[in-house]
Write a protein that binds this DNA or RNA. Structure first.
Lengths: 224, 224
DNA sequence: GTCTATAATGAGATAGAC
DNA sequence: GTCTATCTCATTATAGAC
């Protein structure tokens, strides 16, 4: 490689990163359909055409944004679950610990991950609220389906007596709580007149874990 | 009024309803930003210009769609709460009954309300997932803010020892569960391989009520 | 690799004939 | 009240000079 072409390659890499960062920021704040490629390239300070040149279609760009951090995120979610299971007798872990493991990656990255990770997490929330039939979700599903399945298996072992429908319902409501909380659309700010802000994850997420653990207990206890 | 003008008025009323119905259907399935006025008028089988003629801007049309059923819906939510409180000693109602009252209108209309009400409820879910800074949400907030506030007051009386933050957090997670469930984006269908469908509200909503009642109990019990 | 210019499409809204 | 035709603007995507 010549000196000149090496410099071009470095510059290209920087441009790619600028576009990825801008795309992450824009998608995180307004969702896939709420953002135009123009929004992204203008925010990145690069000409419109470079987005298509480097990443192809809008969907492919979105997929690249997801995969940049998603691989690490999904692996950490799996690791946290494995640690909880390793410390439990006969794989029957305390359900609250499983719920905590499920939320921990998101929590840590929202609190300590820096702006990039915070945007990525908000982006996940937008995506989880989209219809599962949307094409642009394909890379996300591919990354996270195996992890989610292993969490369900773990909860199944902790609640062997629970019906399948009860178990999936409870897991679904755990997902709902996490997604809605992370989306932080502002629903509680006005109602509570400032006593609780929907962006106050440091307060919300530990309460979410206890709330959902209580929900699992209640559903596992049966009909009443 | 002449005979001819009376007939015109009736025809106009029919046209307005056709547009409102089509708008409700389109907004319910793809959200405010995912729908064009063209989508609506084509689905209604009327010329594009009539939407603007009868309803003004897209936002005003959306507001009319919400208000058509929202007034009745909000009033019923309030009524159900009032009934629970009237049957309780000293206004200290069983929290699970309050949670049930909170979800009952939605449940009934999803199961027995017919297609129109089902669409309206899905539309509410789309709206609850939108950022609270979106202008088009204004009529919704105006209608439902007072009802939500009265539910929080009722829960406060049932859990007088609970901290404000815990109470609002739990109420927020109840909202999250209901919104995400009603949105039915399909998140659980693939994971459960058909054992639970996200549109199976008859199974999901009663479990949601017990799950959230358990969550309230767990948060009210304190730190552990 | 970059950037200007533009094609092709679809959007919200309206003018004006009927 | 209705409908055709159109205005104006923003969108995705690409062609072609550098």
């Amino acid at each position: 490689m010549t000196h000149a072409s090496a410099k071009r390659a470095i510059r290209a890499h920087l441009t790619r990163d600028r576009i990825l960062d801008a795309a992450e920021e824009q998608f995180a704040s307004r969702g896939f359909h709420g953002v135009s490629i123009r929004d992204i390239t203008e925010s990145a300070g690069v000409p419109l055409a470079l987005a298509n040149y480097h990443f192809g279609t809008k969907q492919q760009l979105f997929g690249q944004v997801i995969e940049r951090r998603g691989k690490e995120h999904a692996a950490q979610m799996q690791k946290y679950l494995d640690e909880v299971l390793a410390a439990a007798p006969q794989d029957k872990a305390d359900p609250e610990r499983i719920v905590w493991a499920f939320c921990a990656s998101v929590y840590e990255r929202l609190i300590h991950g820096g702006r990039g990770w915070q945007r990525y997490i908000r982006l996940l929330a937008w995506s989880a609220e989209a219809s599962q039939h949307e094409d642009f979700l394909e890379p996300l599903n591919r990354l996270f389906d195996p992890v989610l399945a292993s969490y369900v298996r773990a909860l199944r072992k902790s609640y062997p007596q629970m019906s399948t429908v009860d178990l999936y319902s409870a897991f679904y409501l755990l997902q709902a709580s996490l997604v809605y909380t992370v989306a932080a659309t502002g629903g509680i700010d006005r109602l509570s007149r400032g006593a609780l802000r929907s962006t106050d994850f440091k307060r919300l997420l530990p309460r979410l874990v206890r709330f959902c653990a209580g929900g699992f207990e209640r559903l596992a206890r049966g009909e009443d």
